[in-house]
Structures are given as structure tokens and as C-alpha cells.
Computed example of a mutant assay.
Amino acid sequence: MNKVAVVGAGISGLSMANYLEKNKIDYHIYERRKKEDLAGHGFLIPQEGIEYLTQIIDPALLFEHGSFLKKYVQYSHTGKKLAEKNLNNVFAISRHSLIHLLSQNISPEKITYEKTIIPCDLQKGRLKHPDGSYLEADIAIISDGSRSRIRRSLFTGEKMRTVRENEVVNIIQDQEIANSIENDFMKFHYDQGGLTFGILKLSHDTILWYSQFDNEKYKVNECSSDNLKKYMLEVFEEWHPLVSSIIRKSSYENVHLWCVYELEELNPFYTENIVFIGDAAHPLIPFTSQGVTSALKDSHILTKYLVEEDTVLKAFKKYEAERKPEIEIHIRNGRALLNQFLLPIDQYTDHILPISYK
């Protein structure tokens, strides 16, 4: 194997590059977006994900950039405690921080930004630049997100559907609010279902918050930051004062509005010399909190087989055989969590922890 092209410089692409770097496999990353992407987005990483992440990032450095959460505490929208559960090494970190940490081990010469890679219509298994020239690589690892353009071009029969949930995600730096809460995962639920507000403390002065909407009941449209803030304040006006305070004091410059999609059925994870990882292979709805961990495991296991096997085809087959069954478990768990989210609180079968475990 002479060279690997990694398409996409998000969490899965950068994780893959770090594992390739660790194993001295030559690669280059192509990312269609600009280098700086500061959208207020973050992640929950369970213990298994931390174990993979600390193989490529110094643990002391990693833990400086986020926070371990002690408990999951579930409330009604007015603040009545419904349930709580101790958490075992669940780590919260902003997307920006994790991207920064994963980029530190990658030489700038190995990443090209604002470069779109597309499938070649004339020759299966080949990718090309927009100018028509072929991508010079023995294999291509595709990590261009849940709505992967390359995946849709290669698997033309796939069926992707919108999920009955949208999310608004943001980060606020406010010492006073941060001081008022513990290092817990707090989640407020509307009594009639289909609307939640989650709070994760990232550091002594920084909070990640997100709101989940049943998009059949709440129409969260792409709009200006001022209009989005106004809409949020209207929807959450009667909620616990902590929720309305966070919404009111937040800047909406880098707020992220997430429309969620899923595949009706998973595609193969590879074709010819092209292989998919992370959301490009298997979009997971956010209730699973397994996106980062799954991307890390994909990267680790794919690299392992690329090193061990004598052909790329064998490596791809073993990678898919190992990863697909676990991903299907997370998909089922995510759908179960989504179905419960849509119900009124008094119809919950259980106060389920919003993290999917295999």
C-alpha cells in the first residue's frame, strides 16, 4: 500500500489520519470546508471512546479540554427531578477542542482544505478532483459525513429519511451560570413529550447546551441568529429559570441547527478500493451519543486490518464484519430512544440514559 486518501477532516477523518500516522502509513486528507469551523457543537464520549482516543491523544492534554460528568439527572421542564444515574467515565468536550487536539499530530502539508473530491463516472473505484484529474491514492477512506456525497453517488439505490427530531446546539461561556451547576449531565423534558433541553458543563466557565425538537410539532427553520434566539425564548419561556437564563445569555453567532437523517438500511461499508467510516458509513441519530466512539473504533479497526492483512479487500471485509453488527445495535437503540422522546413523560417505560451501549 503506497498512499491513502482520506476524504473529510471531521472527527472520523482526523481520527483515521492519527491512526495512520501512528502506524506510519502514508496519507493525505482532503476537506471541502474551510479550516476554521467554530459551530457550537460538542460530544459525550463514554469510557470505551476515551480508551480509543487516548491511544492517539495524550490523556493529560485531552482531559484539560473537557470535563468528566458525574451523574445523569433527568428533570421535568419545570425542574422536578425525575431520575438520576451515576455515570462511569463519560467525558464531555466541544467539537472545536476535539478537532484542535486531533489536528495537532497532523502535519499541515498532509491536509488540503477547500478541496471537493467526487466519484469518477467513467471508472469504478476512482475518485477525482473537480478539474477532472484523478486522485493519486491506492485506497480512499471516505469520512464526509452522514449525507456523504460519495456514498450517495456510489450507492444510488440508498434510501435516506429525515428523523422526527431537530437539534439546536450551542456553547456559552458564563462563569456565574457554570458556578451554579455541578459536573452533571442535566436534561429537562417537556411533560407532553417531543421537547428537551440538555446541559453539559465543559469547564469552570463553559457550558454546552442543546435542545431537541419533535419537528412535526416545532418548526425550527434555518434563520438569523436573532430570530432563532427569539424563537428559543418563546418555546422555553415557562421552563426552569436555568434553561431560560442560558438561552437568554448565549451568543448565537456560532449556533448549530442540526437536521437529523438516517439510512433505512446500511450500505456495504466498502466498494472496490473505497471504504467508508464514521457517519459516512453509518449515520447514527444523536440520542445514541456514540458518534465519536464509533468513528474512533472504525478508524482503529480499519487501520489494524490494513496493517495485518496482505490485501486491501481482506482488510475491508474484516473491518465491515467486525463493525456492522455493533452499529446495527446502536441504530436500534437510537430508534428506541427517539420513540420515547416523542412520548409524554408519564408514558415513559423507563428513565433511560441517553447513551447507547452495545
Rank of each mutant, 00 (worst) to 15 (best):
R32D: 13
L61K: 13
K34C: 08
I99H: 11
G42A: 09
E109R: 15
L61S: 15
I50M: 10
L98K: 05
Y72R: 08
A39E: 10
I56D: 04
G40K: 02
E64R: 11
L102Y: 04
N105A: 13
I106Q: 05
N86E: 14
H96D: 13
I56H: 08
G40Q: 01
T54M: 09
E48M: 12
I57K: 03
N89D: 11
K35S: 13
E109S: 15
I99N: 09
R126D: 10
Y52A: 06
L101T: 04
N89Y: 08
G125L: 03
K70A: 10
I139W: 00
G79W: 07
L82E: 07
T116E: 15
L135Q: 06
R33H: 13
P119R: 02
I139L: 08
P59C: 02
D131M: 05
H65A: 06
H100C: 09
H77I: 07
K80L: 13
S76W: 07
K71V: 00
Y52R: 04
E109Y: 10
L122Q: 15
K115R: 14
D121E: 15
K110S: 09
N105Y: 01
K128C: 09
F91W: 06
D121I: 07
K115H: 12
I106L: 07
L135C: 08
S107I: 01
L82K: 08
T116L: 14
Q104C: 08
A137M: 03
E36A: 12
H96G: 04
C120I: 04
Y75N: 03
P59E: 10
I139S: 01
A140Y: 08
P59W: 04
Q123C: 12
L38Y: 14
E48A: 12
A60V: 10
L98R: 06
G132E: 06
V73T: 13
L61R: 15
R33A: 10
K34M: 10
H77G: 06
D138G: 10
T78N: 11
A39P: 00
G40T: 01
Y30E: 03
Q104L: 15
K71M: 08
H41R: 08
N86C: 03
E48V: 11
R33G: 11
A140N: 11
L101F: 09
L135V: 14
K35V: 08
I99G: 03
E109N: 15
E136Q: 14
P119L: 06
A92P: 04
L127D: 00
H129K: 12
H129T: 05
I111F: 06
K128P: 00
N88T: 11
I57L: 08
Q123G: 01
K71Q: 14
E114V: 01
L122G: 14
K128M: 13
T78K: 15
A83I: 01
P130E: 14
K128T: 03
L98P: 03
L53I: 02
R32I: 12
A137H: 02
N88C: 05
K128R: 14
D121Y: 12
H77A: 09
R126H: 12
E136S: 14
F63Q: 07
I106T: 08
A92V: 11
L102A: 05
K34Q: 13
K110D: 08
K71A: 03
S103D: 09
A92M: 05
E84C: 03
V73N: 04
V73S: 09
G49F: 03
S103N: 11
D37G: 03
I50D: 01
K71D: 12
D121S: 12
Y30I: 00
I93D: 00
G125R: 06
S94Q: 09
